[in-house]
Amino acid sequence: MLLLLYLSGGLFLGWSLGANDASNIFGTAVSTRMVKFRTAAIIASLFLILGAVISGAGTSQTLGELGSITMIAGAFMVALSAAFTVLWMTRLGLPVSTSQAIVGSIIGWNLFAGNSIDFYALSRIVFTWIFSPILAAIFAWLIYLIVTKLFSVARIHLFRLDSYTRISLIAVGAFGAYSLGANNIANVVGVFIPVVPFTDIEFVGITFNSAQQLFLLGGIAIAVGIFTYSKRVMLTVGKGLVKLNPQTALVVVLSQALVLFLFSSRGLEGWLAAHGLPTIPLVPLSSSQVVIGAVIGIGLAHGGKGIQYRILARIASGWVSTPVIAAIITFFALFVLQNVFNLKVY
């Protein structure tokens, strides 16, 4: 019971991730009524959990390199502070991402514990944050050009295009959910990996290690977020900030899924290393920023009209402000936990 209480910080982050980020995958599909919310929620939850359990280890290891938290009370406060940062900054209308908050929180813990910060790991993470929306823009630009060319050659009837789009939105959404689970689960429960007392479980011939059990718990928290709150967010995102039609949404979700997958896949990392190629760092990204990158890519394919460069500046400000705020909050929260509640946090 106490363990669950400690994990609640991470599970709350998971709930918030499900509530907010599922809309990056199925927002347009649901708001344009191409896919029913129930279908979207079931597919998103299922594939997010699969992605988390099967491929979540890569990005968790990177966070571990930045700071391996040694006490469960510390991990709890790191996760809770990140969640609080996300909640607070969202309320203030500031650009925020769970990935950037958790990295800031881990740095805050490092500072509090007096550990040195691995600047190599940190620079790799920050570089990836900057690079990922750019890569998403390139992917979206390319995919958009290919798709529009295909449509004009294939001469698909509007009604049949509707069926193809619906099925593709579901298939690409499943891939997007898998990639999001693989990439972002580290944000939710990554900090607990070194400290949970779980033992390996064997189920139908497959062994689940303690990290995978944590990923499953985190995945369930994300699924609860999807079912309880994401519909509202989907309807707002789909019709508010960035209004896409179902075909452009398909391009955006596919680009996002590819980028998240590239930065989470250990299989790809191993393949690249085996062929003597430079590997891609496995880093938790902000799916919202990746989506914005993809939308900009489509804008560029249209000739670059209507791109609001102010939004880009806002994103860039988040790369700095979120980790700094999260680090400060974590530092003070750990101080309170240690000195008021007498708990060991490192």
């Binding site: 009837h157 009604f159 069926s163």
Partner: peptide
Amino acid sequence: QLFKKTKKLELKMD
């Protein structure tokens, strides 16, 4: 089923 429905609809439109 979805493809059958849209195929029928295409024929009706034609």
